[in-house]
Computed example of a mutant assay.
Amino acid sequence: MKKEEIYQYLKKHQISYEVNEHKAVFNMGELDSVKLLYPEWDAKNLFVRDDKKRNYYLISVKGDKRVDLKNFRKQLGLRPLSFASADDLMAIMGLTPGSVTPLGILNDIDCKVHFYMDSEFAGNIIGVHPNDNTATIWIQADQLIHLIREHGNEADIVEV
């Protein structure tokens, strides 16, 4: 799904959202120059895989939070983790680097990606790209979890 298809998908599923259209941003540093509606709720998204390239994970945390992948994997009992390649990102979620988002999981036809959302978002909103880094969508984090589970992917709220 591309950006407009994401908007239609959310409307079809009666998910209310707000949109910030903005210039393309490719990392959290570039986002500092963009005026966001709710900057404290913007998500940083890490697409990682295990050392056997069998399991893929998307981790969403607040934009200013650092993620220690070694501690994260130990906490959840996962194999060693590293960042997935741009080729894997395109093949699995149809995304390019700089546009990684939980909404890309809706393109994961084989439901390979396990989504982990930081517990800081629970009960609040979350800002994510609509599969395109020229906008940020603000939706209820709990609704995002529901959409991903409804699609067939695993999704969990964890303390990162």
Rank of each mutant, 00 (worst) to 15 (best):
K2T: 01
K2R: 09
I6C: 01
I6M: 03
Y7L: 15
Y9K: 13
Y9E: 07
K11F: 00
K11H: 10
K12C: 00
K12F: 09
K12H: 11
K12I: 14
Q14W: 02
I15K: 04
S16F: 06
S16R: 13
E18P: 01
V19P: 01
E21Y: 03
H22F: 07
A24S: 14
V25A: 12
F26Q: 04
N27C: 13
N27A: 04
G29W: 00
G29Q: 14
D32E: 14
S33D: 14
V34C: 09
L36N: 14
L36V: 08
L37C: 04
L37I: 12
L37T: 10
W41A: 11
W41E: 13
W41N: 12
D42Y: 13
A43F: 04
N45P: 03
N45D: 06
L46C: 05
R49H: 09
D51Y: 05
K52A: 12
K52P: 03
K53P: 00
R54V: 12
R54T: 14
N55D: 13
L58F: 08
I59W: 05
I59P: 10
V61R: 13
V61N: 08
K62W: 04
K62E: 11
K62V: 07
G63S: 14
N71V: 00
F72P: 07
F72G: 07
F72S: 07
Q75L: 06
L76M: 12
L78Q: 09
L78T: 12
R79K: 12
P80V: 08
L81W: 09
S82Q: 08
F83Q: 05
F83R: 05
S85A: 06
D87F: 10
D88W: 01
L89W: 00
L89D: 02
A91G: 03
I92T: 06
M93V: 01
M93L: 15
L95Q: 01
L95G: 01
L95H: 02
T96Q: 09
G98I: 06
V100D: 04
P102I: 03
P102D: 01
P102W: 08
P102Y: 10
L103H: 08
L103Q: 05
G104M: 03
I105K: 03
I105W: 01
L106D: 01
N107L: 05
N107Q: 06
D110Q: 14
D118S: 08
E120A: 15
E120D: 15
F121V: 09
F121D: 08
F121L: 10
A122G: 08
G123D: 11
G123S: 12
G123N: 11
I125W: 11
G127R: 12
H129C: 04
P130G: 05
P130D: 06
D132M: 02
D132P: 06
T134V: 00
T134R: 13
W138E: 00
Q140G: 06
Q140H: 14
Q140M: 15
Q143S: 15
Q143K: 15
Q143T: 11
I145P: 00
I145K: 15
L147Y: 05
L147I: 06
I148M: 10
R149G: 07
G152A: 07
G152L: 11
N153A: 08
N153H: 10
E154G: 13
A155Y: 02
I157A: 07
V158P: 03
V160Y: 12
V160K: 07
